[in-house]
Design a binder for these strands. Structure first.
Length: 512
RNA sequence: GGUCCGUUCGUCUAGGGGUUAGGACGCAUCCCUUUCACGGAUGAAACACGGGUUCGAUUCCCGUACGGACUACCA
């Protein structure tokens, strides 16, 4: 196989992309890059009734956020465009007509009521699968049953019609899925799917095959929900005479809800306690916003890494992979077969891992911005010091500021539980000493100086530092837990520490 | 209902005819430590079931159960 690998991600703009779709896009991207091929994006907007404004932009923004930008797309077209099926509308009819000519498709004039009546009749006759197929089509209004003249007359009169594929009666359809191996289906279980709708638009089945062919797609990597219709697609390639260039298929296992009860869907929104969308989606009709991973504080590379491992693994114990490493390690035969439940705890873990490896300089930007929202101006140096001190204990960038505001904001109140247990005579004595020596100090104040001075303040009273440490922390931060206290002191500076201690001394009273 | 797909710790998974069934998340305990975290160590925790094939099956085959997808002029 020396043909250039070309894969596509083909979402329909019916709303925000959900993470299952994002994973499909990711696998397509990884496969293309791994094989030096191209990753295309095609918008499948053949259902005019379900079109949602903004969905297309949403898809673009989501992929850009994750850095899996298509090589060819509506916004960056290659030579096989257009990349929106609605803009290719004029071309599909000739292919459908070609099929009719070859005897593999036919016109059908049945109304919705007639189709309904047929299904009811079949159901009443206890036919297990009522469908428009090789048997029932003989009783319907189509170009196979109607006289040629009448068909012509109906077409000329402008009567609405669809074009259906003529599925052979008895045939074994085989397909070799890259993930599942040979899948065999008997054509008698397939129905005569509509290829061209009465509004002149093709259905997914026709448009998909025609476009994949025209766009030189070599591998179709898509969700498992397409597996049942894959045999029909194989049949279509055959009817068109394109079997020799038919793409290889890989049907991805589905992303399931955390309880394993059904596949993850858009409607799950935030009900499950975590986002199902890559980025925020504002529903223009309801005005409601569905949460996205980006806005929740997930780093793009961490999210990508997490997503890649939902159904795929490299075969060894490594788990942290940059995008480039994923490309290098990726292969379709290491994709699993079974559905994957979505576990948000693991996603958080990945984010934590990535947060820790981010540079303090980069993280400082988050802290500065979040502090600003609280009306606090932080300089870069101070923000970097906070980042360095806090990033190892946080899941999201925003936690660095939100969980550690006390570093920049002097406590107005103190954790009562800690105060009642730790605020005692000894602590007061030590803090009194410490405040005094801090106030008389004007040299360089770093973490070790802060500690040395605190130690001597305790020693002077013959008190062990460990006994009063919590109280010291409480006095300066208002809380009983947090990052290394002496490092915090260094960030605060000698004057501020002394000031806070004086305030605590004046505010807190020793009880019991 | 029918067609198709699937089933290893709670979750993501590695493995594959003979293994103490490995790792990760989460959980628990311990260590480190001025706290909380981080980190380190340890632990509990799995081959859905029944038949075959075989000297031997978690692994191969067949059933059953369970789960899922599909079953539109939606994708």
């Amino acid at each position: 196989m020396n043909k250039e690998v070309r894969v596509r991600f083909a979402p329909s703009p019916t709303g925000p992309l959900h993470i299952g779709g994002v994973r499909t896009a990711l696998y397509n991207y990884l496969f293309a890059k791994k094989n030096g091929g191209k990753f295309l994006l095609r918008i499948e907007d053949t259902d005019q009734t379900r079109f949602v404004p903004g969905a297309e932009e949403y898809i673009k923004e989501s992929l850009d956020w994750l850095g899996i930008t298509p090589d060819e797309s509506p916004w960056n077209p290659g030579s096989v465009g257009p990349y929106r099926q609605s803009e290719r509308k004029a071309d599909y009819m000739q292919y459908a007509l070609d099929l009719i000519e070859k005897g593999h498709a036919y016109y059908a004039f049945d109304t919705a009521e007639e189709l309904e009546a047929m299904r009811e009749r079949l159901t009443a006759a206890r036919v297990v699968t009522p469908q428009y197929n090789s048997i029932t089509r003989t009783q319907m209004k189509n170009s196979l049953t109607l006289p040629e003249e009448e068909v012509k007359a109906r077409l000329e009169s402008g009567e609405p019609y669809v074009i259906r594929v003529k599925v052979p009666r008895k045939e074994e359809v085989r397909l070799n899925d890259l993930i599942r191996g040979w899948v065999m289906v008997h054509s008698s279980t397939l129905d005569d799917k509509v290829l061209m709708k009465s509004d002149g638009m093709p259905t997914y089945h026709l448009a998909n095959i025609v476009d994949d062919h025209l766009m030189g797609i070599t591998h179709v990597i898509r969700g498992e929900e397409w597996l049942p219709s894959a045999p029909l697609h194989v049949l279509l390639y055959r009817f068109f005479g394109w079997e020799d260039t038919m793409p290889e298929f890989a049907h991805l296992p589905l992303l399931l809800k955390p309880d394993g009860n059904g596949k993850l869907s858009k409607r799950d929104g935030d009900k499950l306690g975590f986002p199902v969308f890559p980025i925020n989606w504002k529903n223009k009709e309801t005005g409601e916003t569905a949460a996205g991973f980006r806005e929740q504080g997930y780093l793009p590379d961490a999210f990508l890494n997490f997503l890649a491992f939902l159904g795929w693994n490299p075969g060894d114990d490594r788990e942290i992979f940059s995008k480039e490493e994923l490309v290098e390690a990726f292969s379709i035969d290491r994709i699993g077969k079974s559905g994957t439940r979505f576990d948000i705890a693991k996603a958080k873990w990945f984010n934590e891992q990535y947060l820790r490896t981010e540079s303090n300089a980069a993280l400082a930007a988050f802290i500065i911005e979040d502090a600003k929202a609280d009306g606090i101006a932080l300089d870069q140096a101070k923000a970097e010091a906070i980042a360095s001190l806090t990033k190892e204990r946080c899941t999201f960038p925003a936690d660095m500021w939100n969980d550690n505001k006390f570093i920049a904001i002097a406590p107005a109140s103190f954790d009562e539980q800690v105060a009642s247990k730790k605020w005692n005579e000894e602590a007061v004595k030590v803090l009194l000493n410490y405040a005094t020596s801090l106030e008389g100090y004007s040299g360089n104040f770093d973490a070790s100086t802060a500690k040395t001075m605190l130690e001597s303040s305790a020693e002077a009273e013959g008190i062990k530092l460990g006994k009063v440490m919590q109280a010291v922390r409480l006095a300066v931060t208002g809380a009983g837990a947090g990052p290394d206290l002496m490092e915090i002191f260094a960030i605060l500076g000698v004057t501020e520490v002394a000031k806070r201690i004086r305030y605590a001394l004046a505010t807190l009273t020793v009880v019991g």
